[in-house]
Design a binder for these strands. Structure first.
Lengths: 348, 348
DNA sequence: CCATCAGGGTACAACGTTGGAAGCAGTCGG
DNA sequence: CCGACTGCTTCCAACGTTGTACCCTGATGG
């Protein structure tokens, strides 16, 4: 067996409780005592047994992160940010990739690892306002990352979808583009972020005194490279004229960019393009993709801190919603050399 | 507090231990008793407290996965595979991304979460044979994923680097290519997989009766898109003639492919290209990239099972090394429509 | 009719930790 | 010189689970 607090007590010559007090930073301890205990801990290489501590305290120091999957760049980068934030607070992260689809998302709420985490950060795509009661019925502290509101009944972190989309579109308009595509809404608008980003796009168009042209709004069934490529292929076939593209996420943008280049169009000379998400990859594409940086680190920080607040505060605490800021990363695909234009908002 | 085994005992009318026996599937129980206990469990929605179980049994049901980072597609997909395998065995996975560099890798071995996992799967890039003693000194059960041997002293899962590379190169040769690039070795060969894949490439070249031409072996400092692009740019500038490329991994291949296309070369007509890793992305690139599929699921399964074996068996158990099989995924970039050619090896 | 036995159940201790209550010096005020 | 107080330290119990040892009941055999 490994070294326990009992061994530390024996070696240091103090009682078990005194050692425990040292570990937990209790105030009333003679410095000398503290020092001798710490020496013994050091000497033995003692580390508290988390299971026992957890059993006693009801805490595990582990939080869960529920995401659709890890192989999508967006979620991998989100997970990375959450893990770094959590690690800074001494928390470990248990990732649960649940696959896509509403059924899987619901099943995850009853997941088998729920009882070994202090709380859960839940990145959902398909849950909507109607599921607020369901989420409230889960007795694990919960923070949702997502763009659908739950009537303020559930802690939620959301990103600046509309403002970010508007800034991206305005940037294209400011560069003289007049026919900017919105790529790509969802049929039926089941995904909230699509709706919000489309709204931001429209705001920018109308604020510039241009007419909102439904022909420039295209659709894709998946927000992946493939969807972006397919949409763009169809647009070119249809002969729609445009000189700018605001893609609702980076992979759509990359897929579209690829098709545009295959068709002989130059980026940004013929078509300027801006994405959304600031995936690592966008820095390495040719040309480097301009994009809205949703500040994943801020999202992760807000999520972890809100979760900790909920864990401390219990279910009675009033739910909060936080919208994080964004910045616009102007790269080659929209004509920038590589400056950064920043515009941030923060609202509770 | 949540529902405990005590509540189940009270409701079902049996003792705590009897309930425990039902949960743990002890044989000597009247079916009726079993049924009534299970009914009570169902009724109360009881779930065993893992911390208590773990404290009692010394097991946590959690394994650690130490990888450089999650944002690299290869590791994200590896993590995904490990998590799926582990989930099928009722294990949760605690991912610890440690950044790159030898120092970080060493630090991870003494990581803070080590005491809350039953064992660790460790994907290392920089550890070498000289570190065998170091690895053995870690008292947590450990399985290494990597291409460097530790003299058979540490459990290790490795992939078919040489055979896979040879198959990829042979495929290009069989399609009539005569000047096939090897992209890209590491300067100084610090990374074992580079060395092994280069050996496989060379085997194929020589087995075909061709001369191994050092001019066709190029170098890159990073196995990322950027490195592939930079290498290819330099090759084109240098005017090196070639009609095929075996890239040591997929991101190198994608970076190189991009530069080739920008230069006006057609893939696969002018240059056929094969990668290594079978990243999800390779299916969506244009053209779809042929690649060596290292069977990540097999690697993950072997890793988890070897780890479980080590956890059960203790440190005395003799270390094993497993080399998983591979298959060659022939896609558009090397002229295939989308067939799959398979060739697998398995050795202990 | 009692000893034996087996199936099926129960009581108790222990895993390592921490909070609460209490103990125990030494110091200070009356 | 006694009692209260202060500043540490110690003992005890408890978190929820499971293994060990034991007990009970009814059936069986001598």
């Amino acid at each position: 067996m490994s070294v326990t607090i009992r061994d530390v007590a024996r070696v240091s010559g103090f009682s078990i409780k005194t050692v425990s007090n040292v570990i937990n930073g209790h105030p009333q301890l003679r410095p000398e005592t503290r020092q001798r205990v710490e020496d013994a801990i050091e000497e033995l290489g003692y580390r508290p047994n988390l299971s026992a501590r957890n059993l006693r305290s009801g805490r595990s120091g582990v939080i869960g992160l529920i995401i659709p999957d890890l192989t999508t760049a967006y979620f991998a980068e989100l997970a990375d940010a959450v893990m770094r934030t959590a690690a800074a607070r001494g928390l470990a992260v248990l990732i649960e990739p649940i696959g896509s689809g509403r059924e899987n998302e619901l099943a995850a709420l009853r997941g088998q690892h729920r009882h070994m985490v202090d709380g859960v950060i839940y990145s959902s795509l398909t849950l909507g306002a109607g599921d607020a009661d369901l989420l409230k019925s889960v007795d694990t502290p919960l923070v949702v990352l997502g763009d659908t509101s739950f009537d303020g009944q559930v802690d939620r972190i959301t990103m600046a979808n509309t403002a970010g989309a508007r800034a991206a579109t305005e940037h294209l308009l400011a560069a003289g583009r007049r026919r900017v595509l919105a790529l790509a809404a969802h049929e039926g608008d089941i995904v909230a972020s699509a709706e919000l980003r489309l709204a931001g796009y429209r705001e920018a168009i109308e604020a510039a005194g241009l007419a909102f042209d439904p022909q420039l709004v295209c659709y894709a069934d998946s927000w992946h490279r493939r969807g972006g490529a397919a949409s763009m292929t169809k647009l070119l076939e249809d002969g729609v004229a445009f000189d700018g593209v605001f893609a609702f996420n980076d992979t759509l943008a990359l897929g579209a960019m690829r098709v545009l280049q295959e068709s002989g169009r130059r980026i940004p000379q013929d078509v300027a393009i801006v994405g959304f998400d600031d995936l690592d990859e966008t820095r390495y594409s040719l040309p480097a993709l301009s994009t809205v940086n949703p500040r994943r680190d801020d999202i992760a920080t807000a999520a972890v801190e809100t979760l900790l607040r909920r864990i401390e505060g219990g279910p009675e605490l009033e739910a909060i919603e936080i919208e994080t800021g964004f910045s616009l990363e102007i790269r080659e695909s929209s004509g920038g050399s590589d400056q950064k234009a920043t515009s941030a908002t923060n609202a509770a």
